[in-house]
């Protein structure tokens, strides 16, 4: 049933966000650390397990796929409620800091992607030469 998929999704999210909160408390921070990311890991692992054991029906998958497909519309609704006026009226300092932070982070994407790849290649070569 479709609701099984939706419920599984809901369960993963609640559990992940709860873990993220606990992680925040353990670290002594008043913030959720990676709750959504942890939820995603749960979902990937559980769906993988269910699929391998053929315990998930197409209908249940449809329930999850629906919310995945609603992602872009939801993001558009999200953009429509951003505080755009607040961002622009923050003045030159806020705008400069924001713009430069984005520029530097963009520039780092290829650099860090490469670092990881080299590690992987070394790892592979090590494995081959063992």
């Amino acid at each position: 049933m479709v609701i099984f998929g939706v419920a599984l999704l809901a369960f993963c999210m609640l559990l992940g966000v709860y873990f993220g909160d606990l992680l925040g408390i353990v670290m002594g921070v008043d913030a959720n650390i990676g709750g959504v990311g942890i939820s995603m890991v749960f979902l990937v692992l559980i769906v993988d397990y269910l699929k391998r054991n053929k315990k998930i029906t197409q209908k249940s998958e449809d329930g999850m796929a629906f919310w995945g497909a609603m992602y872009i519309p939801i993001v558009i609704a999200m953009s429509a409620q951003q505080n755009v006026v607040g961002a622009i009226s923050g003045g030159p300092m806020a705008i400069t800091a924001g713009v430069l932070a984005v520029a530097a982070s963009f520039a780092l994407v290829p650099v860090i992607t490469k670092i990881g790849q080299q590690k992987d290649e070394e790892y592979v070569t090590k494995k081959i030469f063992k």
Partner: peptide, 22 residues
């Protein structure tokens, strides 16, 4: 209603749902 649709709750649910294909 845009606030509910694009708010953190449904946004996070939809983000988690995208992991379905990861």
């Amino acid at each position: 209603g845009i606030g509910l649709m694009g708010g953190a709750m449904l946004r996070d649910l939809a983000i988690v749902a995208t992991a379905f294909g990861a």
